[in-house]
Design a protein around this nucleic acid. Structure first.
Lengths: 228, 228
DNA sequence: TTATAAAAATGATAAAAATCATTTAATTTT
DNA sequence: AAAATTAAATGATTTTTATCATTTTTATAA
């Protein structure tokens, strides 16, 4: 089992503020797990007794609506932390975390997280910064969901996906999503998402190579996302 | 100028964790201000150098969309704190805070907040809890905006408004909003909001008394908000 | 109080988006 | 590799929601 001190993924999150002693302690208590594609790491409505740190793999955070439809709230990848929101608010988990591909994840017990918060102000501040930033993003999302038409939201989402996951060696957005998942991200019907993707392709703004999407005219896409 | 130790509004927020010494210190540094109806307490995109604690008065947190439309993200009232998200994430203010009626507000400089975070773990934890809770609410909001029809969102919003602001002596929701503001909360056109309110009245679910709204059949409204 | 402006209400119409139905293509399974 | 399943694409249609136009009501100012 690997040691947290050697782990380089932590430099992307609040765990980078930990002292060597704190890291040793967490190393001793952490467990590592493999989440296979399609499996749940966290489930909405459940209690949680620790925080997850994603080592690698991509995933989605979703919410199940009353009508049974999935809403994708956020995408996750290596370096992201999960579960801290629930621990800090002392509420049940609010979102499902589902692997889009096999993931390697470390689990750190709640007690260690709370102890570290009490001892290490820098860690506290980084956690707060993380959640505060997420809150700001969520507020922006609400506004866009409420006021932008579906086409604009699709453009926005494609730009966002490229920003998060980067591009592969063929310049395609480096994540594989079904059309349904894209629809569930922008909050529309699958057929509408498919149609709008086809239109963007016809207009030369994107390229569709199987399930992969390549942004071929980023400026045009930005304009569309802003309603032009 | 009043003293924070005597202030009872703080029992509704993170400031209740402060020691007497900390309260004295903040009392010395705080300023009190009156925000008249319609005025801004915070403005989107601005820097902020402190945290606000609302003593009384009601307000709205809004975001201006690219098309110039206002989206109401959240309602605020006495006991709520503002600006801490921006301080903690070290980002610009994300929302406008606008008074719906005259407000009394205290301003606490950023330095005092950050000092207190470092000294008082309970205060830190309460702040984190506050933001974590807000993040959870925001995520729920995204999901509902994306997937619920306008009618359901209106029902949801009316229930939410009653929960936040309570009712007056005539059992009306105790806040005065224009139809446009209601529309900007649920993310629809003003005319649509008006029409749906009229329908709810016709169906005997609510009562419209001038600008005041009375929920006359809460169960029916709950069912509507859940899509039945 | 009357004039003026702003907000609310309502009808008619247009645009956006969802749903249903079917076909085509891509994956999986046998 | 063929069959079966699932996902993607596309057309036709309906539903939802927005926009435009106008009237009525309410609030504000002269």
């Amino acid at each position: 089992m690997s040691n947290c001190r050697q782990c380089i993924i932590k430099r992307f999150n609040a765990l980078k503020t930990l002292t060597n002693d704190e890291l040793e302690n967490i190393s001793d208590h952490k467990t590592t797990l493999i989440i296979k594609k399609g499996e749940n790491l966290m489930t909405e409505g459940n209690a949680i007794n620790g925080m997850y740190c994603i080592r690698d793999g991509k995933g989605k955070l979703t919410k199940l609506n009353t009508n049974g439809k999935e809403q994708i709230i956020k995408f996750i990848k290596g370096g992201d932390i999960l579960g801290h929101r629930s621990i800090l608010s002392e509420e049940l988990v609010g979102l499902n975390a589902i692997a889009l591909e096999d993931m390697h994840v470390c689990f750190i017990p709640k007690g260690d997280i709370l102890d570290t918060i009490k001892e290490n102000t820098q860690f506290s501040l980084k956690l707060m910064k993380n959640i505060s930033h997420q809150l700001n993003e969520a507020n922006t999302s609400i506004s866009q969901m409420a006021q932008k038409p579906v086409k604009d939201r699709l453009a926005e989402t494609l730009l966002h996906l490229e920003e998060i996951f980067g591009v592969d060696n063929e310049a395609c957005i480096d994540v594989i999503l079904t059309r349904e998942e894209i629809a569930n991200t922008i909050g529309t019907a699958t057929e509408s998402a498919i149609r709008l993707l086809s239109n963007l392709k016809k207009d030369g703004v994107i390229d569709l190579i199987g399930k992969k999407i390549k942004i071929s005219n980023k400026n045009a896409l930005k304009n569309i996302s802003e309603g032009y």
